[in-house]
Nucleic acid binder design. Structure first.
Length: 238
DNA sequence: AAATCCTGCAACCGCCATCTT
DNA sequence: GAAGATGGCGGTTGCAGGATT
């Protein structure tokens, strides 16, 4: 769970922190406080860069950091604030005394996100594999929520090479305002479709009048919905 | 028992905002 | 106002250890 210690070209140590290093940093900060992260390692006798010291202090050594399992209440707060703010981990962490942004982010990715996807998975997974759009297709949407999936582009990843996650944006058709900049709920295409249907987040958007323009940009895929003509344009190529 | 896969999380990286000179 | 320094943030990676085959 830790990185193997090594040294960069400047002779600065990288990787996991030893107990001795922890003690040195802790002792220095307790005695002199935090005044300049760049200089602190030098004076504390550490062969580390300032950023590394800062991170180690804030995420692990700082006495206010709370260790241990998350409570149900904390989890609920994270979910609620994530719906409100997206991946603004520092904002979310501010509402959770003792938790750091890094910790909250890790918790989201390893616990909450997975839990939520699992819940949806069984419903839509098979459908997501039934067909694929290789070229531009035009699909007339019908947005009664319960049957909308028959009309949205269905993407299949079964023989897709491993790719970076697509970048997603959701833009309000009326104001061009970015609603969900790059929401992680839109991950790989297989889960992309599932995530689209995640009611808690999308239900208000899956309404014919207010349906957002949805755009997916990466080297492999593009699709968008135009509120003007009610056409979904999908392009999926490898 | 050994090999392989999966998971959780500490730590790194790069970008951007703010501060200082 | 410009340039450099510093801090802060979010995305990503690496790997130990547990689970599964």
């Amino acid at each position: 769970m830790v990185r193997t210690p090594c040294f960069d070209q400047n002779g600065k140590k990288k990787g996991s922190w030893s107990e001795e290093e922890d003690n040195m940093l802790k002792a220095y900060i307790q005695k002199y406080g935090i005044w300049n992260w760049r200089e602190i390692p030098k004076y504390a006798g550490l062969a580390r860069c300032g950023k590394s010291c800062r991170l180690r202090w804030l995420n692990y050594l700082c006495p206010s950091v709370k260790r241990g399992n998350y409570t149900k209440q904390e989890e609920d707060i994270i979910i609620e604030l994530h719906q409100k703010h997206g991946n603004k981990w520092s904002i979310i962490a501010k509402e959770l005394p003792g938790r750091t942004d890094n910790e909250v982010k890790n918790y989201w990715h390893s616990h909450i996100k997975k839990k939520r996807l699992t819940k949806q998975n069984h419903v839509y997974k098979s459908r997501a594999r039934t067909s694929r759009l290789k070229d531009v297709q035009h699909v007339k949407p019908s947005f009664g929520y319960e049957n909308s999936f028959d009309h949205l582009p269905i993407l299949d990843t079964s023989d897709q090479p491993t790719i970076n996650e697509p970048t997603f944006s959701v833009i309000s058709p009326s104001s061009s305002e970015l609603i969900y900049p790059n929401p992680e709920i839109c991950a790989f295409s297989e889960t992309l479709f599932l995530d689209f249907s995640e009611e808690s987040i999308w239900s208000e958007l899956l309404n014919f009048d207010t349906l957002p323009v949805v755009a997916c940009h990466n080297d492999y895929s593009k699709f968008s919905y135009s509120a003007d003509d009610g056409i979904i344009n999908g392009l999926w190529g490898f």
